[in-house]
C-alpha cells in the first residue's frame, strides 16, 4: 500500500528534479546581398498543444537609437502570434541585441528561469529568424525534456538560418 502511494505521488511531480543542460547553437549565415541587416531571432520551446512552453531568447534591435526596434518584432510572425504580443520587451534574461553572421551559443539548465518550471515531456525547439528587407525562416527540432541521455540534434536552414544544433544532457 505504501509503495502504491509513493508511485502515485511521484507521478504528480511534474517538474524535473534532476540536473539537465541544454546548449543551443544558432548559425546566422553570411549573405551576399545589397542591403544587409542582422536578423531578428526568437527561440522557444513549444508543447504538444502548440502553445509556448518556454521563451528562451529573442534577439532584436534593443538599442535602436529611436527606440523603435520593437516595431518589427511582429515580423517574427509565429513567435509574435504565440508569445511576443503578450510579452513586455525588453525583458531581462530573454531579449538581447541582434547577432552578426557566425555561430552563437546559448546555454540553459534546469535551474534557468526559462526551464525551471517546465514539466517533463516532449517538446519542439523552434528557432525563427526574420530579416529586414529579407526573408523569414522557421526551424523545428523535436526533443525530450529533461533528457534521458546526452543527445545532439540539429536542423539546417536554407535561407535565413544556417545550422541550428541543440545538445541536451542529463
Amino acid at each position: 500500500m505504501r509503495i502504491l502511494l509513493s508511485v502515485g505521488l511521484s507521478g504528480l511531480m511534474a517538474a524535473p528534479s534532476l540536473a539537465a543542460d541544454m546548449e543551443i547553437s544558432i548559425e546566422i549565415p553570411k549573405l551576399d546581398v545589397a542591403e544587409y541587416h542582422k536578423p531578428y531571432v526568437a527561440v522557444w520551446l513549444e508543447g504538444p498543444d502548440k502553445k509556448v512552453a518556454a521563451n528562451l531568447a529573442v534577439w532584436y534591435d534593443v538599442a535602436n537609437p529611436k527606440q523603435e526596434g520593437d516595431k518589427w518584432l511582429k515580423d517574427l510572425r509565429q513567435w509574435w502570434r504565440r508569445a511576443g504580443r503578450e510579452l513586455k520587451v525588453p525583458a531581462d534574461g530573454l531579449t538581447s541585441a541582434t547577432r552578426a553572421p557566425g555561430s552563437h551559443t546559448i546555454k540553459f539548465d534546469n535551474a534557468s528561469s526559462a526551464l525551471k518550471d517546465l514539466a517533463s515531456g516532449q517538446y519542439e525547439l523552434i528557432v525563427e529568424a526574420a530579416r529586414e528587407v529579407g526573408g523569414r525562416e522557421v526551424l523545428r527540432i523535436p526533443l525530450q525534456w529533461p533528457p534521458k541521455d546526452g543527445t545532439s540534434l540539429n536542423a539546417k536552414g536554407e535561407h535565413e538560418l544556417g545550422t541550428v544544433a541543440v545538445n541536451v544532457k542529463p
Binding site: D70, K74, W80, R85
Partner: peptide, 9 residues
C-alpha cells in the same frame, strides 16, 4: 493589420 511596438504606432 498586426503591429508591434510602443510609440508612434
Amino acid at each position: 493589420t498586426v503591429l508591434s511596438g510602443k510609440d508612434d504606432i
